[in-house]
Design a binder for these strands. Structure first.
Length: 937
RNA sequence: GCUGAAGUGGUGGAAUUGGUAGACACGUUGGACUUAAAAUCCAAUGGAUAGUAAUAUCCGUGCGGGUUCAAGUCCCGCCUUCAGUACCA
């Protein structure tokens, strides 16, 4: 019997589906284990071999945990709202729902071929109304909450209104939008309804605010900070402008400290924790006021270097600062105005690419130094950001490089407050190894001493307070798009009102075209039925809007991260129609034990879902405050592009091995036209693209060699490898093994199909270990000692490999085991049936088939991962001579059974040692802690 | 610039955490089987020197130092690559 992977895999995949093998239920007798993958966005291009990498690892891990006796939840779904489907809809007029569904089917077909143990009965899709109903509900909860800094948690907005009624907001500490109006309970009760709502917006966690946003004209929408890379949009690489718009926002800044501190509670890679720490960007410093000479206003600045206060020689305001124009003197005002305009027209990209270009203008006004009372000129410069700190800085040119450059450029005085430090070329920016000078009572002090001293002085004078600043901004939550969750919000006289929870979901309306409207409204502006009837509580035609009973509904939709921020909660109880998930399910399944996915979501999805989880915890909807206990970031699989050389300006191509110093261009060709030895199929190439039909190929013996280059797998480079073809040629088990064998899960690694014959050969060898021409050859006989050794060594290794997520070394250990057992001619079922069990997480199809062929021969229980026995693990002591400084020594490595015995005894009892010593008695025995003993002869 | 990760044969990568570096696999070379090819099986495969040979010796984990009986692994100083971030006061 031959190993026929095609029929075997088909057979078992069918069997698993028909028997609902992977359906999971709550089982209180078993411990739970929750393994989750980052769910895919179903793009039109389908899967390439890089996509399933993480899924294979999580599948192996969850199958392994099942064998260890856990009740494992291993679900899968689709992140099916998003921009590409919408852009495709704009081009073709097809409803995104249709194309999304089509893409999902393609994905599902591809995934099914790989033999995953997903519980598909729990599948979710974020674009499904049954799902986004709950996304909308969470939005409502966020809208109806505020962040109480005293209790350090989110609370219902009704509590806040009660506080306002009782005592106004003067005593309140809460996370709010900047510069919230202060009022008493009396004033509160006198406010109009609209006014009250406007004030509440400053407190709500989901709030509407006119804020400066990243506008992308090409995409016609705003983007969050994490959707922008190097000043251009992540998707498409388009230009970004700053614009003031009325937008929904998420007050994630309220959670900054908890998001930072709780990183210590979770088992994530240090790099991703560090990325989140940087993104949150906590800095501790001092906020202080500088009075403006001849004005009532003062300028508030934030600094992390209060110790350098005596080095201040000017101040700088951001162009957007509210005082910039106000304090400019008449002679300078026109110039300042022009500068503000210039700065606002500079796009994000320009600002980043021209970092070194120094621009600024003098306001003509002066501030008073709070300690020396000296006059300090106030400048405007766009190196100061409006969005960080207070939008104004005290400039210390001797201690900050940007201040230094600015001062040099505009010829401003640079006083030196660092003793014996040369500042004639650059600022001295270190926080250590200095002593202050020219700093009055701080003279002679170090950074720490000076900082403490100045802070207590400023706090005593009332001119400054200790403050913490975060880089983390509130997240913009509106998108001017069609294919996303609609907001359950309508507008009464411009004031947002929530549609009650019981009328959810608010379904996405149909539109004729998916473009923004002519007047610039988002695509939902085209929906005919998009008005809310407050009396009937239903959606009605827009024509009926009277602003008395029938009102317009929000036209924006939610961003992509809305649906993905909480999806792990839905898997545990996906069909629940009355709640996000039942308490029973929450108590049993709890949060995710192992989460596997790419690291590109470090500052997006992974931060937002932590934020929402903490919020839901605060509001007592869920009993835990972190979503993912353990996170593994799988590295990308890179493509191995094939490149041929064309003589510049001709249609003549030279084989790689014949290339000398000719002037050539590199042309990417389809990797499927190249065999394992890097030889190009020229006939295939001619058929592939018409340009090659008439081309001339220079090669030796008709063997045309290509160059290989490792780069991201992409259609553009023709280096995409489809897993379907691999399954077709070698089978899913070979693919699963090979993807793991490529290298450590977290590492970036190139794909090279030629290597797959290795894992495929291994499976053939495995097959031959059990089956020969006449059928199954496993016998119910006692195993040899060698067989037992191999088996138990392997069990131990595999277990520790999988537990430590070293999926690649486990594959090697399987290969070693099968090679050894083949050499030993092992046929004992006592060895070969446990071997199948430990292999089954990796290669479920072939092991299932062999199990069924073994019939009743198995001598152990099928369902559990076998325990290894220590007695078979003993290895012989090793001894080897070495030479150190001319002296000969013997190195002795102790075996397990000898480790705790007397030295003399070892030499006496161990044949191996005696043979090596050949009768020579050691002069001295040196015992070094550890396993090695040095014998000096 | 800052932060994080990493540099090992022709290639992907192992190395029980300080103990015979290169496991396992690909590729390459040679051999067997075959009319031939494919498939399969066997052997060799880091480099250098010596030897007909078994073998022996030396050099080898990015570079330069150090600790240690012993360093791919620990310490100090560099170089390079990848990733994240970027006027954050």
């Amino acid at each position: 019997m031959k190993y026929n992977f095609k029929s075997i895999e088909k057979k078992w995949q069918k069997y698993w589906t028909e028997n609902n093998t992977y359906k999971t239920k709550i089982d209180l007798d078993k411990k739970k284990y929750y393994v989750m993958d980052m769910f895919p966005y179903p793009s039109g291009e389908g899967l390439h071999v890089g996509h399933p990498l993480g899924y294979i690892a999580s599948d192996i891990y969850s199958r392994f945990k099942k064998l260890k006796g856990f009740n494992v939840l291993h679900p899968q779904g689709y992140d099916s709202f998003g921009l590409p489907a919408e852009q495709y809809a704009i081009q073709t007029g097809q409803h995104p729902k249709t194309t999304t569904e089509k893409n999902i089917n393609t994905y599902r077909n591809q995934l099914d071929k790989i033999g995953f143990s997903f519980d598909w009965s729990r599948e979710i899709r974020t674009s499904n109304p049954d799902y986004y109903k709950w996304t909308q509900l969470i939005f409502i909860e966020l809208f109806e909450s505020w962040y109480d800094k005293n209790q350090d948690k989110a609370r219902p907005i009704d509590d806040l209104i009660r506080i306002f009624n009782k005592s106004g907001n003067q005593q309140l500490t809460s996370s709010t939008t900047k510069n919230t109006l202060k009022f008493s309970s009396k004033q509160w009760s006198d406010f109009s309804k609209e006014n009250k709502e406007n004030i509440l917006q400053d407190y709500r966690i989901a709030y509407l605010a006119e804020s400066e946003v990243n506008w992308c004209p090409e995409l016609g929408t705003v983007l969050a900070n994490d959707e922008i890379i190097n000043g251009v949009s992540e998707r498409g690489g388009f230009k970004i402008e700053k614009r003031l718009m009325l937008q929904w926002n998420m007050r994630i800044s309220a959670y900054a400290d908890r998001l930072l501190n709780d990183l210590d509670k979770i088992d994530w890679s240090s790099s991703i924790k560090e990325t989140q720490r940087n993104w949150i960007g906590k800095s501790i410093g001092v906020s202080m006021n500088f009075n403006i000479i001849g004005h009532d206003n003062s300028i508030e600045v934030f600094t992390t270097r209060p110790d350098t206060i005596f080095g201040v020689s000017f101040m700088t305001l951001s162009p957007e600062h509210e005082l910039t124009l106000k304090i400019s003197i008449n002679e300078n005002r026109a110039e300042v105005q022009e500068y503000i305009k210039f700065a606002s027209n500079r796009s994000e990209k320009d600002r980043i690419s021209e970092v070194k270009k120094i621009t600024g203008v003098f306001t003509g006004s002066y501030a008073e130094h709070p300690l020396t009372k000296k006059k300090i000129p106030i400048w405007v410069g766009d190196y100061v950001l409006a969005s960080y700190g207070t939008g104004a800085v005290m400039s210390v040119p001797c201690g900050d490089q940007r201040d230094y450059n600015f001062a040099k450029h505009f010829d401003i005085n640079i006083p030196n407050i660092f003793k014996d430090k040369d500042i004639s070329y650059e600022a001295f920016v270190d926080k250590e190894n200095f002593e202050l000078q020219n700093s009055s009572f701080l003279d002679g002090l170090s950074f720490d001493d000076a900082t403490n001293s100045i802070i207590s002085r400023l706090e005593k004078d009332g001119t400054g307070t200790k403050e913490i600043n975060y880089r983390l901004r509130d997240a913009v939550f509106s998108r001017q798009r069609y294919w996303g969750e609609p907001f359950p919000v309508y507008y009464v006289n411009g004031v947002p009102k929530i549609i009650e929870k019981k009328y959810l979901p608010i379904k996405l309306p149909d539109v004729e075209k998916y473009l923004p409207t002519e007047s610039g409204d988002p695509p939902l502006g085209r929906a005919k039925y998009w008005a809310w009837d407050e009396k009937e509580n239903k959606i009605v035609s827009k024509n009926k809007i009277d602003n008395k009973i029938i009102f317009p509904i929000e036209l924006n939709t939610m961003p992509g991260w809305a649906g993905s921020s909480w999806y792990f909660l839905r898997y545990i109880d996906p069909k629940n129609s009355s709640k996000i998930c039942s308490n029973e399910a929450l108590d049993y399944w709890s949060n995710v034990d192992l989460y596997i996915g790419g690291n590109e979501h470090a500052t997006g999805h992974l931060l937002y879902s932590r934020f929402w989880t903490k919020f839901l915890y605060d509001r007592e909807i869920i009993p835990f405050d972190e979503p993912f206990k353990k996170l593994i970031n799988q590295g990308m699989i890179l493509g191995s592009s094939a490149i041929i050389y064309r003589l510049s300006g001709t249609n003549k191509y030279i084989s790689k091995d014949l290339l000398k110093n000719e002037d050539v261009e590199e042309i990417h060709v389809d990797v499927n036209l190249v065999n394992f030895s890097d030889e190009l199929d020229i006939e295939g190439l001619k058929k592939w693209q018409p340009i090659f039909e008439e081309a001339e190929f220079v090669s030796k013996n008709n063997v045309f060699m290509v160059e290989r280059k490792t780069e991201k797998m992409s259609k553009r480079w023709y280096n995409v490898v489809n897993p379907d073809l691999i399954c077709e040629d070698y089978g899913a088990d070979s693919l699963r093994l090979f993807e793991m064998f490529l290298g450590p899960l977290e590492q970036y690694k190139p794909w090279n199909t030629s290597g797959i014959v290795g894992t495929h050969n291994f499976l053939k060898k495995l097959w031959k270990l059990y089956v020969d021409e006449s059928g199954i050859k496993v016998k119910n006989i006692k195993p040899e000692l060698d067989n037992l050794k191999t088996l138990h060594k392997t069990i131990k290794k595999i277990e520790s490999d999988i537990e430590s997520y070293s999926f690649n070394t486990a594959v090697s250990n399987f290969m070693i085991a099968v090679n050894e057992l083949t050499d030993q001619n092992c046929v004992s079922s006592e060895i070969l049936s446990p071997l199948l069990i430990i292999l089954s997480p990796y290669v479920p199809h072939i092991t299932e088939e062999l199990w069924s062929l073994l019939g009743n021969q198995e001598s152990i229980i099928k369902e559990s991962f076998p325990n290894f026995e220590k007695k078979y693990l003993k290895e012989e002591s090793k001894i080897y001579p070495i030479s150190i400084n001319g002296k000969v020594r013997l190195k002795l490595e102790l075996s397990l059974d000898l480790a705790n015995k007397e030295i003399e005894k070892i030499i006496m009892t161990n044949d191996n040692v005696l043979n090596k010593l050949e009768g020579v008695k050691p002069k001295r025995i040196i015992i070094v802690p550890g396993k090695i003993i040095n014998l000096v002869i």
